[in-house]
Nucleic acid binder design. Structure first.
Lengths: 208, 208
DNA sequence: ACAAATTTAGACAGGCTTGTCCAATTCGTC
DNA sequence: GACGAATTGGACAAGCCTGTCTAAATTTGT
């Protein structure tokens, strides 16, 4: 296990102040001196950890968004599968949980570092996801007012049942993820499904 | 400011390991010795802080749930107002933010303490809220499958736009709270509004 | 006003952590 | 095998924090 990975684990478990370099070195399987040789001091190591996590998480999120169902065959099933991928690969995995916890615990101490994360992460992520939903709406699969709102609400809904588990840093089971995604997508589609009224076409136009 | 309040503030800002008793004493305006006289040691003080926050937050949440619109005159407006109250009095206020942060940061270190919170807080909260939604559905104002799911999704939706602010420990503005609640309730009602046979009416509701 | 209880400031020991230094050892590469 | 680079273990000083102790000052109750 690399030094940065071990440091991520210890920083998350113990908090910045509670993390000690000896423990990180032991967990990484190297001597303390090597940690100092590679990363200078504790603060630099912490910054390296956050940058590393941010980068990997963003990569994962964009890779997953690339698998968004632009031409759905079964809209509900496709969106559920997408939500499950999102959760599994970006939100529930090691990097996602660690990054979230570090942001929550130490975000206020390193404003510029986390501002950077915020711009490159959620900022661009939500835009990208909103664009995909807008496309679905344009293609007539959904009836959406504001795509940005819809994207945020989609994420909120498919994670609605996992809040408590996240709060305590736990890892939800595959079954919990699936159930939360299924319930969330179902409600999302109830709200945003294309209107099937005689005036459906009109309604769709109004929202465009 | 009482010792426990000052301790809550410092524990949240610095983390358990990073919090030092001198700082807590100074912030509370008492001597360090007094802190030790009252609370024994750091760990006991921490437990007292969490219990205090848990108790006050639960009281606030149940008081707010008691104001749920059981006989709504304007369902959307009433639910938005309820959601705003919930956010302002329970989730965004000092106690709510502090408790959330302590749970996220130290939850794994004190499993029994936070299990206690979980049972008395979210467990009963969600049930109580679900019961209110079930009642609205029974009275014909909503069309709900599983009230527990609906309650969790309601909370997720009305907070959808505040996630980032929460993540960094910030306090959303009144306007942000209102907008998030409005958008969330609108989507919630789109999904759970009572089904009317003429589909035209539904379409009209969506953008009202 | 007086006595008891509480609070205070400061000193203090003990322990832990950071970050440095260094000699010995191991590793990679030719 | 040999040589330079990296790694190791351990010692080390300096600083910080916890928790205790004490004697003085302050508050409280009567």
């Amino acid at each position: 296990m690399s030094v940065v990975d071990a440091a991520a684990s210890v920083f998350c478990r113990e908090g910045y102040a509670g993390a000690n370099i000896d423990l990180i070195a032991a967990e990484a399987g190297v001597s303390r001196q090597t940690v100092y040789n590679h990363h200078g001091d504790k603060e630099k190591l912490f910054v390296a950890v956050v940058r590393d996590l941010t980068e990997r998480c963003n990569a994962g999120i964009f890779a997953t968004i690339a698998s968004f169902p632009d031409q759905p065959t079964d809209l509900e099933a496709d969106l559920v599968a997408f939500a499950v991928r999102m959760n599994r690969n970006c939100i529930c995995n090691r990097d996602g949980r660690f990054l979230r916890k570090l942001i929550q615990a130490e975000g206020e101490r390193y404003p510029e570092l986390f501002a950077e994360w915020r711009e490159q992460g959620p900022g661009r992520t939500w835009s990208a996801l909103a664009a995909r939903f807008a496309r679905l709406a344009f293609a007539g699969h959904l009836s959406i007012g504001d795509p940005d709102v819809a994207a945020r609400q989609f994420l909120a809904l498919v994670n609605a049942e996992l809040q408590i588990t996240f709060m305590l840093g736990g890892m939800p089971t595959e079954e919990e993820v699936l159930r939360s995604a299924t319930n969330g997508v179902r409600t999302f589609l109830s709200a945003f499904a294309r209107k099937k009224s005689p005036a459906g076409k009109q309604a769709a136009l109004v929202h465009a």
